[in-house]
Amino acid sequence: MTLRLRFTRLLPVLTLGVLWATPARPAAIGPGVAEAIAGQGHARVVVMLHVPEGAAASRASAMDAVASAQAQVLGGLTTSDLQLATHWRVVPGFGGRLTARASRSWASTRS
């Protein structure tokens, strides 16, 4: 008999392009983020960060660069902005719940 697995949750997968910028560099915010925040007060997101070119010369230097980039961004946020779910060591980014407050804050920095 062939077994199968259940999947009961269908989550949003839309990816429209919305530009959003920090004062330093523009970031792209995908579709559904603003809507999720408006509807639920937060959005479960993955945030990818810039890391300096050449930072991956070695595993150690790459991890240092990732940590530095995360610290730079996360250091400016509070739990009212982002509920950090996870951050990574070799992947330059993090995942978490973005809040309405962060959304308003980031909206004000849009270029």
Binding site: L5, L11, P12, A28, V45, V46
Partner: peptide, 13 residues
């Protein structure tokens, strides 16, 4: 920061 998208789910294949 470069990019932000809604995280999504999935399943075992």
């Amino acid at each position: 920061m470069r990019r932000i998208d809604l995280d999504v789910g999935g399943r075992a294949h």
